[in-house]
Amino acid sequence: MSIEKRMLARELKLAAARPGDIFKPMWFLMLVISMVPLALSPDSALLADIGSAMIWVATLLALLLNTEHLFQSDFSDGVLEQWLFLDRPLAWLVGLKLIVHWLFHVVPLICITPIAGLMLSVPTDVLIALLMTLVVATPALTCFSGLGAALTLGSSRSGILGVLVMMPLFVPVVILAAGVLIRATDGSEILPLIALLGAFSLVAATLVPIAVSAAIRLNIGGSN
């Protein structure tokens, strides 16, 4: 069995062993969404206006919540150290890990956003646009928060530092997604912006794993 297949099988097993890790961010997302009408007002017109933006922000937070410790367990049980000795570039393995993480932990999150959309009475066409932005934008977000997780691996008291460090870099993605949502509300063309977001994700997915692997090497090799 190739290294990639074995890695995939291991991730699958781990995900099956800890379903809570997948379930908790979804739970968090629904809780945040239920707070919105309570904090604002149950007026559905008002909710429809801000609903899509709220869902976006809540998904972003939920994603950060589950990516924060992306490499922690692999780091503490020595798996990352083993990666260094495989005949594969570290960046490639990191990329694989990020893709698997996105599939198992972020896609389920995206899958429940339509329910959140219905709760906040977001119009259907905006909801479709929202789903499209989430699908094409979350890979970039996953990569960046993975970098935050890798950079803070070595420090025992980092807390949510990885999140704080990486969040400013989310700005372009959030802005582009907001542009899509505004256009979808107007009923104008959204595909060019979706393509741009997708391009951003692709570039992030190719370049960020290199930075992540440098950060991992740094934390394993110590000072050399």
Binding site: L151, T152, G154, R157, L218
Partner: peptide, 18 residues
Amino acid sequence: GLRAAIQDPDQAGKACGI
């Protein structure tokens, strides 16, 4: 914040560089 969180100055410097 990142520099403050990492003890070893060399390691902190490289992390900040990335």
